[in-house]
Amino acid sequence: EEEEKKKEEIARLLGVSKEDVERILKKNNLDIEQLLRRVQREN
């Protein structure tokens, strides 16, 4: 699934687990696209 791939990509870029990414998304109330763009910009 596309969303899972995005979570895995974010996890890889941040050096965290996919579960961490899911927690970040919930905690910050971000959607996956916003987080992915933010992470890609910083790297």
Results as ranks from 00 to 15, higher is better:
S17V: 04
A11G: 06
L14N: 00
E19G: 08
L25S: 03
Q40R: 12
I24R: 02
E4S: 08
I10L: 10
R12A: 09
L25G: 01
K5D: 09
L13F: 05
V21C: 02
K7Y: 09
E9F: 13
E19S: 12
E1I: 12
K5Y: 10
R12I: 09
E22N: 09
E19D: 12
I32P: 13
I32S: 06
L30H: 04
R23H: 12
L25V: 06
E42L: 06
E3F: 14
R38E: 15
D20I: 13
R23P: 02
R41G: 14
Q40M: 10
R38K: 15
N28H: 15
E2V: 10
I24M: 11
S17M: 06
L35W: 03
E3G: 11
Q34E: 15
L13I: 15
N29I: 05
V16G: 03
L25H: 00
N43M: 15
E33M: 02
R37H: 13
E2P: 08
E2H: 09
D31N: 11
K6G: 05
A11R: 04
V39T: 06
K5F: 11
E1R: 12
E42A: 09
L14M: 11
V21I: 09
R37T: 11
I24A: 03
E1M: 13
E22Q: 04
K18E: 05
L25M: 12
E8R: 10
K18Y: 09
E8K: 11
E4M: 09
N28L: 15
L36S: 02
K7W: 07
V21D: 00
K5G: 09
R12V: 06
E2I: 11
E42G: 10
K27S: 13
N29G: 13
E4L: 08
K26H: 10
D20S: 08
E4N: 10
E33G: 03
L25I: 11
L35G: 01
E9D: 08
L30E: 11
V21F: 02
L25C: 09
N29Q: 08
E22W: 01
E42S: 10
E3R: 14
K5L: 13
N29L: 07
E2M: 11
E8P: 00
E2D: 13
I32R: 00
E9N: 06
V21E: 00
K7P: 00
E1K: 12
K7N: 01
A11M: 08
D31V: 04
K18F: 09
A11L: 02
L13Q: 05
R12E: 07
Q40W: 02
R12L: 08
E22S: 05
L36H: 06
E9V: 12
L13Y: 06
V39Y: 02
K18P: 08
I32L: 14
G15K: 05
I24H: 04
N29A: 08
R41S: 15
I32G: 03
S17Y: 04
V39L: 15
E42I: 09
V39Q: 03
E33W: 04
R23G: 10
K18M: 13
S17N: 08
K6E: 04
G15I: 00
L14A: 02
N29H: 11
V21A: 01
R38G: 09
E33F: 03
K5E: 10
G15N: 07
D31E: 07
A11E: 01
V39A: 14
K26N: 08
E33C: 06
R41V: 11
E42R: 06
Q40E: 12
L36N: 03
E8C: 09
N28M: 15
I32A: 13
R41K: 14
I10R: 00
E22P: 00
R38Y: 12
Q34T: 13
E2Y: 10
L13R: 07
E8M: 13
Q40F: 02
E4T: 08
E33V: 02
Q40C: 10
E2T: 12
E9A: 11
L25E: 00
E4K: 07
R23W: 08
K26G: 06
A11S: 07
E42D: 11
E19L: 10
K18D: 03
E4R: 08
E22M: 05
I10P: 00
I32K: 01
E1Q: 12
L36C: 04
E19A: 12
K26T: 11
V21G: 00
K5I: 10
E3Q: 13
L30Y: 08
E19T: 10
L14S: 01
V16H: 01
D31K: 06
K26S: 11
R37E: 15
E33I: 02
E2A: 11
E9P: 00
D31I: 04
D20N: 05
E22I: 06
L36V: 04
K6V: 11
N43K: 14
I24F: 08
E19P: 05
I24C: 09
V16E: 01
L35Y: 02
E1C: 07
E4V: 07
L36M: 06
E22F: 01
K26M: 11
I10K: 00
R38P: 03
K27L: 14
L30Q: 05
R23D: 13
V21R: 00
K6C: 08
I10D: 00
R23T: 11
K18G: 04
V16F: 03
N29K: 11
R12C: 10
N29P: 04
N43V: 15
I10H: 00
G15R: 04
R23Q: 13
E42F: 04
D31F: 04
D20M: 13
K27V: 14
I24Y: 11
E9M: 15
E22T: 06
L36G: 03
R38F: 11
E1P: 12
S17P: 06
L25P: 00
E42M: 06
I32M: 06
V39P: 01
R37K: 14
E8F: 09
D20F: 11
E19I: 10
V16T: 07
K27A: 14
N28F: 15
D20Q: 12
I32D: 01
N28W: 11
K27I: 14
L35R: 00
L14K: 01
E33A: 03
Q40V: 11
K5A: 13
E8T: 10
E19M: 09
D31W: 02
K26D: 09
I10C: 13
E33Y: 03
